[in-house]
């Protein structure tokens, strides 16, 4: 009988921590692991690239439109004769930083609103979800263009403009998880030991609601990078910093003459966002128990 057995029965060895199981599940998903490796390389390039290749991305170093490989410039030069490789490496920092910061912001807003709505229900939920719906039906690109146009194209404003239009998905996921988990017995049990509402929200329910939020956050980094590229392409980027989207935007007139100036940063965005999506999918498979059982 289970009650009196000593500690090390085979049952106990088999019952492992759910996170260990999720990790193993993730490691078995080769596409996700490959994507994770690519992503780590991109992040390393963003961090150390500009140090190892210290050419100023704004400096005109050579004749415009030198094709990749010519004259020692691995990726060629753009329409002003600036080094593409330097631009790509520096731009990686900005694109990833904006992606992360905007995703962080939308996760923060989304969790706060979703948690309050899902936990308290009633009129609080009504108000918060109407606000969420308001942001959901706004044309996102137009809304962020208006913000950037009004407040100026600086990195913090662009990050804010992206974050403010993309938190609704997190809010809805968080709310639905909270609505589900708040009815579970361990929440009532915590309540019955005197836990305060803040305690219930942050240390009882939130840790259990995190898996789908983590997946959504990962995917959101990718979509924020795309969003930033879109804004930059339209000219709404900080002129003092290089980002991938900005390189594409500034070279777009020459797409027929020197397609590599647009293609190279485009491929960088494509590979990065694809890698993030694959990692996100891998996380989803690993963290979602319904998929795990298939």
């Amino acid at each position: 009988m289970n009650e009196s057995v000593p500690v090390n029965t085979s049952d106990n060895i088999r019952a492992r921590h759910p996170m260990a199981e999720a990790f193993e599940m993730f490691m078995g998903n080769y596409a996700a692991v490959a994507a994770l490796i690519v992503l780590i390389l991109i992040i390393l390039a963003a961090i150390f690239g500009p140090m190892l290749y210290p050419t100023d991305p704004f400096e005109m170093v050579w004749a415009p439109f030198s094709p990749p490989g010519a004259e020692g410039f691995l990726l060629g030069t753009d329409y002003l004769g600036r080094d593409m490789l330097a631009g790509l490496l520096t731009g990686a920092r900005v694109s990833l930083a904006i992606g992360l910061a905007a995703a962080f912001m939308s996760v923060f807003i989304g969790i706060t609103i979703g948690a309050l709505a899902g936990f308290y229900r009633g009129w609080i939920e009504e108000i918060l979800m109407r606000i969420t719906e308001f942001f959901q039906v706004l044309p996102t690109l137009l809304f962020s263009m208006v913000i950037v146009a009004l407040f100026g194209a600086s990195l913090p404003i662009i990050t804010f403009a992206i974050g403010i239009v993309s938190w609704t998905a997190v809010a809805r996921i968080t709310r639905s998880e909270f609505m589900r988990i708040r009815e579970l017995e361990y929440v009532t049990a915590s309540r019955s030991t005197g836990a305060s509402n803040a305690k219930l929200i942050f240390s009882v329910i939130l840790p259990n609601a995190l898996p789908p939020i983590i997946v959504q956050a990962a995917l959101m980094v990718g979509s924020a990078i795309l969003f930033e590229a879109g804004l930059s392409f339209l000219g709404l980027s900080d002129p003092n910093v290089v980002s991938w989207g900005q390189i594409i935007g500034s070279n777009r007139q020459y797409i027929l003459d020197a397609s590599f100036t647009v293609t190279i940063p485009g491929v960088a965005i494509f590979v990065t966002v694809l890698a993030i999506s694959l990692v996100g999918d891998g996380l989803n498979d690993a963290l979602n128990p319904r998929l795990r059982r298939r």
């Binding site: 759910p18 579970l184 017995e185 361990y186 009532t188 049990a189 915590s190 019955s192 030991t193 009882v204 259990n208």
Partner: peptide, 13 residues
Amino acid sequence: SMIFQEPMTSLNP
């Protein structure tokens, strides 16, 4: 204090 019906789900995982 209170203890509940369903011990499988009344502890936080």
